[in-house]
Design a protein around this nucleic acid. Structure first.
Lengths: 150, 150
DNA sequence: TTTACTGCAAAGGGTTTGCAACATG
DNA sequence: CATGTTGCAAACCCTTTGCAGTAAA
């Protein structure tokens, strides 16, 4: 069984747990996210999922997010981007273009993750906050914008 | 001379360099940001700077950002927050409440910064991107939301 | 006295929602 | 057939902009 089939099984299961159905539209959204190199905007989703209504894209991505299948994020510009939940793709971080907003996934060395985990622990004990995630973005300029800007 | 006076002198200088004036409204905005514990929303700015028009807040913060005095960021919710530019406050990172969106500043150990710098360098050389900043956020729940949620 | 800045109100753009029709269990 | 889902269009909210009046160099 291919990894994508596993993905659909997991998505189906998580939606049913919420009393939701895993419809063709939702399946198409998961396929689009699984095929992308990094978090994608609604505009990109609509371009890739032909015939899908904008409102359905927003609504279904919200349903998928509630079910823990999808993660929504906002990076540089003020438009949201969506990716598969981290437990489906593995922990990773982002490389963000400050010019056009495009986002690529990057892996981070284990030693750095350990330092961040230590920071999270010491911050939680030094404050009254609870800390349960972290987010590390590298900001720069993507190849396309470098070419366009020069 | 107090640190706040230095801040106003620097702001004045950077605005003039852009052909802009350092007006009472802009001075008030800098005072609000200097007095806050972390990045603040427009709503918070308006509450603190009495009588300031909303459009003036947005416009002046944009002018201050262009001049390199202010930094605009978007974290958890979809509302922008503003803080003084990093060269005025020192390099720091953020502790973000996933529930209400409030943001606190945190310092990070030098060793972690060095690991992040190394990641930035290796990422730049492994891709065609240029990398010039980074952003590390810890995500959790602030004391107020913990109290409200229990 | 020229140029920048202000407040108001209207417009803009991404996102959400009401509703009637449709599809699925 | 009962409930969840869809697409359309209108509403929503944060943010930006046009404009006429005001203030600063």
């Amino acid at each position: 069984m291919a990894a994508v089939d596993d993905l659909h099984l997991t998505a189906d299961e998580r939606l049913r747990r919420d009393g939701q159905r895993y419809t063709a539209n939702r399946r198409a959204l998961v396929d689009v996210l699984a095929a992308s190199e990094g978090p994608v905007t609604i505009a990109e989703v609509l371009a890739a999922a032909d015939g899908l209504a904008q409102s359905s894209a927003y609504r279904n991505l919200a349903v998928l997010e509630d079910a823990g299948v999808v993660h929504r994020l906002v990076t540089a510009d003020d438009t949201a981007r969506y990716e598969l939940a981290e437990d489906l793709t593995g922990h990773h971080h982002h490389l963000v273009c400050a010019s056009c907003g495009v986002v690529a996934d990057i892996e981070v060395p284990e030693v750095l993750e350990r330092h961040i985990a230590a920071l999270a622990a010491s911050t939680a004990s030094a404050t009254r906050w609870s800390v349960d995630h972290h987010r590390l973005d590298l900001l720069g300029t993507c190849p396309a914008c470098q070419a366009a800007g020069s």
